[in-house]
Write a protein that binds this DNA or RNA. Sequence first.
DNA 1: ACCCTGTGATACCCGCCGGGTATCACAGCC
DNA 2: GGCTGTGATACCCGGCGGGTATCACAGGGT
Lengths: 300, 300
Amino acid sequence: METLETRELRYFVAVAEELHFGRAAERVGVAQPPLSRAIQQLERRLGVTLLERDRRGVSLTAAGEVLLHEGRAALDAATAAVRRTRRAAGGADGRGGPGGPDGSRERLVLAVKAGAFHELLQRLLDAYAAEPGAAEIEVLPSGTCEQEAMLRDGRADVALMHKPFNSLAGFDSEELTTEGQIAILPAGHPLAARETLTLADIAGIPGLPLARWPRNGVFPPGPGPEVDDQTQLAQLIALGRTAAVFPETARAWLWAEHAAVPLTDAPPVVTHIAWPAHSRSLALAALVRTATRLAPPAAA
Amino acid sequence: METLETRELRYFVAVAEELHFGRAAERVGVAQPPLSRAIQQLERRLGVTLLERDRRGVSLTAAGEVLLHEGRAALDAATAAVRRTRRAAGGADGRGGPGGPDGSRERLVLAVKAGAFHELLQRLLDAYAAEPGAAEIEVLPSGTCEQEAMLRDGRADVALMHKPFNSLAGFDSEELTTEGQIAILPAGHPLAARETLTLADIAGIPGLPLARWPRNGVFPPGPGPEVDDQTQLAQLIALGRTAAVFPETARAWLWAEHAAVPLTDAPPVVTHIAWPAHSRSLALAALVRTATRLAPPAAA
DNA sequence: ACCCTGTGATACCCGCCGGGTATCACAGCC
DNA sequence: GGCTGTGATACCCGGCGGGTATCACAGGGT
């Protein structure tokens, strides 16, 4: 079984994503003719038609679609391999048998959604630092729902994730906490005076459309303003231009001009600690243990 | 970020597994000097010492250990990509938009532990075949606990797994059934007359050591005979030379010379249907739906 | 009808790098 | 001290990945 080189996968993924040889060539940093040839060779070697070249434009075949998904996963795994290897050697200089206490502190990269988890994160870091032989934790703020990609490609070793928003598929995880959701409104808005709200209450309010976040780089369609980070969002809410729905612990970053009202029918948000399934790090295991001890799911 | 070529990963994994350049070179099909050079280049490019060359023998550094694990995962992902791409094109000739009903039947490879699941499997295949638009299911018998590797490297698309024995880490899965375990003994053995047994009862019987299976290619230490498949095991039991512990449904393949006695304190065995986390196949989703409908976990 | 534009494919050349053989350097070991 | 077996080094060569120039062809403007 011949196995594809990552170069070939990079090339194909670029073409499959751009659906344009010229742009793809520029992206991977080669000229267009070699790219064309590489894809042709790849198709010959696989014995599979991956692209439908319909003069003026390229489209993926079903097999091409499969290779796009699988190839992305393989490339992530490859870059994860080099990242994690470098990191393993970084602090520990590469010597000393695995698991042996050689005095060097392991390092773990923890990905968290920027702006969330203020208190839970603080308690976790404090409690873990007190553990004997604790690794050094580097907190890596991630964009919206980007933790999954960070775990996959090795930028992070472990992540805190929010269940309905993040997908835990492909990772090991432990449940930490469950919380309700609140609506965050401009302080002066009529609804801000209510004790509780429902999703229906805030769904179609004229003049107060819910803000939209980019998902996988694109904004979902809708009337609300497009925001990239919480600061933008907070400002727009303070200005009375939009509203948003967040987990309860988002109260931590509320402004004076904000009002928070519990939502009775919003799905609960479950916080998990997640890590790559094949991880073998002892430091990671200790961190997970600390986390579950600190915040047992529900009342376990 | 330069990304390793799969060739380099193959080379390194070979050396890391063999801990011997000569044998590794033979395994990957090149001469030894190019292999040495490739590893040196790899270490230079990563800026990391992966191997400790201590004249007369090679050993892994901590970083090397990491790259071995991560590299295996990446290689599995790469070979899975080509296998699944070829399979996607196999039946469907590569044409027809994804998801479009183009008349060609999708094919799914289902990995099952050889010899297990007689009735559950039969019912599942029958029920699924009756579904409209069902894919063609190819049943792939796997060795002991080999289903995980088969899912990872693309030899299979979906698998039936036994919970305490298989690890579901890294896969999506749904629970199907739970069953107790039974001791399988020679029919004439004194213990075979008992109504129930405990693990302690059969643990240290003189002259009747429990058989040992290879785990990851090596046999765990112990007094029992080493067996590779169920036929060998069945014969040894019938001959009164050994005993074994199995899920209840193993009654299906009992011989006349066998006796089965329930174990009261053995951990229950949970059967799952599992698949790669990033799978997007509609046919697979239908199969999973059929399976959960057919065998709801406990009494859901 | 014309050319211009933009697409991907082809033709051709070149330099580099992966692979081979021959050999070395060194540590055990009879 | 020679023999064996290890990995590293030296050197050469062929193939292949990459570049430039060009082609073939479909639209679309006027």
